[in-house]
Design a protein around this nucleic acid. Structure first.
Lengths: 190, 190
DNA sequence: GTCTATACGCTGATAGAC
DNA sequence: GTCTATCAGCGTATAGAC
């Protein structure tokens, strides 16, 4: 018997990995319960429905991203270093075992998701895009970045490319994520 | 009673749409059979296993892409116009009802796919990436495009961005696909 | 909190009649 | 080619004992 909070957190950790690895329709309560060596019903005790579980994954990720952006270590970095720290998130997913990012998994499965999950997915995408847009805007104003057009459009390209590259890796080569990041850096060079 | 080839083609058309709309694990034989007003077993007659169906979808798409690139109308266009024609594929998917592209759907579900489908997915990604790389390479040599680094890296960014943007649209705004394409064009401007 | 037991629709798939 | 009938297994989910 574990403690409540411990099992609950383990479920969430595992489920998030499964979601990034296999998509929301590609994992089941059985995957979780057998991996944690508990029964199906124990998982349902902590997260009654799969939608509850999905929502919890996304909300935690949003809180984590918020905390990450406000982290004091982050605040002291210059703009290109901040961008590279952001790239680090995607490098981590690759290292995890070629996981895709949460946004990519959720948006691809979007039409099959319960509406509560759809709403959280929208909020997650908005959080990340807004932060990236601000980074690019201020970075260009400070002379650290150079790009044509407006920061929003550039943020869309950068984010969508990272998301897409992380998926593409699976059908091509792991080096393609790094290739995309290097090329993005080149394109933003002053 | 329809003719053999007609039903078989209708199944393939419908299944491809469902795959782009809901992912490979998000549709079933029932979706297809009820939409075509036939029975489950009739679909299995044409495509015995779901893997057979999936492989057929990808192989047809590969043939279609090959034909598209060799189309005489395409051959006469200049490089920026060729790129815009390529963008048109993604605009079409958006118009279809915010479908994602085949590569994006398959790569996200990749780990759950039967190996025959994984192989075809790799081949599809390779086909498209090679074509795009050649377009960018020759376009730069001809002075139509300008970008730093090598054509392969640039192709990875362009393709992954289109793929990612088409997914992002679902959680944000339809205009984001066009925003991405506009920004890519700006970045490739001489 | 976790268990056993169970419900029940859906899933991909097959056999055999027409 | 399409049908009816049927299958075993898996999916999410619940009730109630410990």
């Amino acid at each position: 018997m574990r403690e409540h909070q411990e099992t609950k957190k383990e479920i969430l950790n595992l489920a998030e990995g499964l979601l990034r690895d296999r998509g929301f329709n590609g994992f089941s309560y059985k995957h979780i319960s057998s991996a944690l060596d508990v029964k199906n019903a124990a998982v349902h005790y902590h997260y009654p429905t799969k939608s509850d579980l999905g929502v919890a994954i996304i909300q935690r990720a949003r809180r984590g991203f918020q905390k990450w952006t406000q982290n004091s270590k982050m605040q002291n970095l210059d703009f290109p270093k901040k961008l590279d720290e952001f790239f680090g998130i995607y490098r981590y997913f690759l290292k995890c075992g070629q996981h895709v990012c949460l946004g990519g998994a959720l948006e691809t499965d979007f039409k099959t998701l319960p509406i509560e999950m759809q709403q959280e997915t929208r909020a997650l995408a908005s959080d990340i895009l807004n932060w990236l847009q601000e980074l690019l805007k201020k970075g260009r104003e400070a002379g650290s970045f150079s790009f044509p057009g407006n920061p929003r459009d550039q943020a869309i390209v950068v984010l969508s490319s990272l998301q897409g590259a992380l998926q593409m890796v699976r059908a091509t080569d792991p080096s393609y994520l790094n290739a995309a990041m290097k090329q993005i850096e080149r394109m933003l060079k002053t």
